Simulated scan of single mutants.
Amino acid sequence: MIAGHELGHYVNGDEPRSSIATFSYTANEEAEADKFGIGLLYEFAENEDLVFDTSQDFSQAFSIPKNRQLQVDELAKNHRNVFYSF
Rank of each mutant, 00 (worst) to 15 (best):
S18H: 08
S55F: 11
H5Q: 07
L50D: 04
D34W: 11
N78G: 12
K66P: 13
F36P: 03
A27Y: 06
G39C: 02
S85G: 11
S19I: 15
G37L: 01
Q60L: 13
F23C: 11
F52H: 06
H9R: 03
L50V: 05
E30R: 02
L50H: 08
V82T: 12
V11Y: 09
S18M: 11
E6A: 07
T26D: 03
N12T: 04
R68K: 15
A61P: 01
N12V: 03
L40C: 13
N78S: 12
L40Y: 04
N28H: 09
E30M: 06
E46T: 08
A33T: 03
S24I: 01
L50Q: 12
E32S: 09
Q60H: 12
A61R: 11
G13Q: 10
Y25A: 06
L50A: 10
E48T: 08
V82H: 03
P65T: 14
Q60K: 14
I38Y: 05
Y42T: 04
I2E: 12
Y42F: 15
Q56M: 11
D49G: 03
Q71I: 06
E6K: 07
F52Q: 03
G8M: 04
R80A: 14
S18K: 10
Y42P: 02
F52Y: 14
R80T: 15
H5I: 05
Y84I: 02
E43A: 13
D73L: 08
N47P: 07
L41E: 11
A27I: 06
N47M: 13
Y10Q: 06
Q71P: 00
Y10P: 00
K35E: 13
